[in-house]
Design a protein around this nucleic acid. Structure first.
Lengths: 210, 210
DNA sequence: GTAGTCATGTAAGAGGTTACATGATTAG
DNA sequence: CTAATCATGTAACCTCTTACATGACTAC
């Protein structure tokens, strides 16, 4: 049940409509927890029913309306409780590592392609996170700044340190993933080299391999 | 839909009952994909209905029976297809990193405890993985050995290389997690130090902090 | 008027968690 | 005979995914 905490974490700084929240989920907290629109709207309603957020209905044009959600005291309390309580590690479940353990069942060129795609994806994510980290460090991150403005000045550096620490964790992970995939490519090369030398030594290999 | 591939990956080497499969999921593939018993039984039935596995009903004692599942040709084909096809990265969704970004909402002692627990958990996992890797390297890993016995000898080293590569990936991740959490503890210390020096400078801090 | 964006939802289904339920068999 | 283990399931519930659906507003 982290979605609601991610949502609370965003609107505690800036009351938003569901629509805006959806967009904020691609660019801020979305780096940490992604959620589709179809999950956000009902969750907001549920949180409202439980008193964690409250909606101010605002007019939009003539007829239309919109609901601007903000966090209640109960919502802030829940957010603090969650930040304080211990949560166990999620179960081990990683489609890529599982597959990697069975790479010997795939043609080696496909393995290479998959590893290259892995590298590209994490390189992309890493750039995003790096940019976010820079923004926070240089005090250009709006959400964080709004939150800071409500906290005592002497705590600002401490808060920023935690935010950066979280992003550094993601970046370190991405680096590890890229490094791992590169090693995988090296393994592919070794295997190719060994197979080539093997089929030179005994020619019937090449026939059975084709 | 990785569960079925994890299951196929185990019983391709050794036909097993659902019960045995459940236990194997704590010790071999379980390092890569964990699943509760209540998920495994129905999945086996579904795979049987789809022709990916077949069950041989064997007697157990006098009255009782058991179903021993093995992979069909269609099952092996599906496993190979999955190993070959590209699968997109799962969505970003990590409860611990999300929380870490909001650690400033928790008392610092709780943050320390959570980071210490994080370290302990990954240290534990790392030992498991390391042991598994050693077992594979020293050719003591039963499942892998059975699979090797059906493959040409000159491919054995290649297959083992991939298995070890996958485990090395997990181990590298664990190392990164532990390193990250240690940095987090350092951040906590810095914050404590800064707060202490701050409250020496202005005494009213200490009062408001209690 | 029409295309794009603002705004809010619903519904079906897959996958996973937790808990409950049952009975045969084997070792002591 | 009794406890542990072998063996197989069901059911309720939650979360997330994918797709569909609708309508008002704004800029051109």
């Amino acid at each position: 049940m982290s979605l609601r905490h991610a949502l609370l974490g965003v609107i505690k700084d800036t009351p938003l409509t569901g629509y805006d929240l959806v967009r904020h989920f691609q660019g801020t907290v979305g780096y940490l927890w992604s959620a589709p629109q179809s999950q956000i709207y009902p969750e907001l309603r549920r949180m409202e029913a439980e008193g964690l957020v409250e909606a101010k209905v605002a007019p939009r044009g003539r007829r239309a309306q919109k609901r601007i959600y903000s966090v209640t005291e109960a919502g802030m309390a829940e957010l603090r409780r969650w930040a304080t309580d211990f949560v166990p590690l999620p179960a081990q479940r990683d489609p890529i590592m599982l597959k990697a353990a069975f790479f010997d069942l795939a043609p080696i060129e496909s393995v290479r392609e998959q590893l290259r795609a892995h590298i590209a994806q994490f390189q992309w994510r890493m750039e995003q996170w790096q940019a976010r980290e820079d923004a926070i460090r240089e005090r250009r991150a709006e959400l964080v700044e709004v939150w800071l403005s409500r906290q005592p000045i002497e705590e600002h550096d401490n808060i920023i340190k935690f935010k950066i620490h979280a992003l550094e964790g993601l970046i370190a992970r991405a680096r590890a993933e890229i490094c791992w995939a590169r090693n995988g490519l090296a393994v592919c090369d070794e295997i190719d080299a060994r197979r080539a030398s093997g089929s030179v030594a005994s020619d019937d290999q090449a026939a059975s391999a084709s």
